[in-house]
Design a protein around this nucleic acid. Sequence first.
DNA 1: AGGCAATACTG
DNA 2: CAGTAT
DNA 3: GCCT
Length: 534
Amino acid sequence: MIQRNGGELAQTQRSADLLLTSLKSSSRIKRHLKNRQVPIADIRWLKDCVKEKELLPLDKYSIPVDDVSSRSTHDTSSTDSQGGSGDDKQSHANKGNDINKQSHTSKDSSNENKRDSDNYYLPKSSDILTKEFANAEPDVLSYEDTDSSNDESNSNDDGDSDDIDPNYNNTRYECLRPTPLRSKHNGKLVAYLRLLEKARELETNDKSALAYRHAISAIKAYPRKIQSEDEAGKIKGIGSKIKELTRIYLETGKVPEAEALLSDEEFRTLDLFNKCFGVGPATGKAWWDMGYRTLQQVLDHGTLSNTVRLGIQLLPDFIIPMKRSDVEELIDIVETQAASVNDQLLVTPVGGYRRGKQQSGDLDIVISSKQEIDMSDILLSMIDRLKSQGYIKHVLWKSRIGPSTKQDRLHKQRAADTDDNEDQVISKSFRRSGFDELPKAFTCFMQPSTGISRQVDLIIASFEEYPTAVLGWTGSRQFERSIRDYAKKEKNIKLSSHQMITRSMPERRISVTNEKDIFDALDIPFISPQNRNC
DNA sequence: AGGCAATACTG
DNA sequence: CAGTAT
DNA sequence: GCCT
């Protein structure tokens, strides 16, 4: 039945990516289990799929076996950029599902063909796709309170509650001071401001959103509990509007303007849409305006590019946070595969993981080399290898610029097809051949131990580019913005993830061999990755 | 009043 | 060029 | 929305 309908029957449990069974008790299932990495579902799923002629979500059929819930215990919504709205409360999708008998099957894990089989890698199921906010319970404001019984310790004496803490570096450049993962003393206020930031972003009020971001970073870095509106008003990044919000917060313990968003249907819907790869504020708003209220509706009725369709279909998995051990499992895979491509490769995990986040939404990896070697083709080699080993299931996005060689080929090809406007083509290829950016790919991995799809971004950097690439990809986003801003405004230096150059006319490249060199060249104190959570 | 990081791909 | 991604 |  599987093969007749375009599926493949795996030879072994290990190579399957879905197990179907009709066994009833989870203990019996466990005795037969050799592969805990993949979802287990009732065999009726298969029959129903055939009946409906489509791949149905697994959730109503999936059978929970794992008792060591792969979810983490407390989930305090992620720190940066990611939604401050602590949406889902532990979706324990699986309720009474126990059926009988067994049989296992399904897709082979290696091979990747572009036909329908792609679909078999897709949905894990979940209620996210059908989630609708019309009459839903409001979200609960989730925030990171590191300190319940605050004050004490420092706050030493003088706490003239209207003056800012003297230990605080009150600057407009976030990169000049340490910013921890979470606010130690003002977590709830930060959570409210995040909501407002998000709302501005979804309205495409970029500049306003940025202003909230500055304020949020400032407060996260602020070393004690803010006790008065005047104290808040003295912090750079907080102006009249946010000072007022702070006043309200201090008086009532709430920020109504933000609180309202927790139960606002449009906001919550746009926020959800926006979580899909390839879907930004404009697309989300367009969907809303067309009357779509769930992602499933969009899937069913919208006309979508392949990338966006994938983005939606992968969301149920991508939305599940990775614990550090999950991330490490993927790092191991990349390291192993890199070593077999070239033993000089150096694999460095960056992104939120490097900044110490306990939960990550994706994994960013810089692939460089221990010595100067030719890095052209490394990206493609890695992708090929990871695909053939069955780890990469999709490439969501891939840059095509790569160190010279094949790039030239591309451009020559192009120039050949369009002799129309020679000059344009030439100047274009000229700019590009200078390797403006790092070759990179955003991919979807299948995490072996859980069977969950994970977003993994691979970035290739040459030996020389390594330091700036690591700095640039470690983030946070706000840290990068501020350090580049500082470099430009204060030092007249142009900083990007692939180089650091003086802007004064004879542009000269500043050579650096590690991150510390970059801070030194800018003459600013080194900030450890754990303190770049602006 | 001007500026807010910096770049690349897609359609 | 507008939109999206990092 | 905030700083210069």
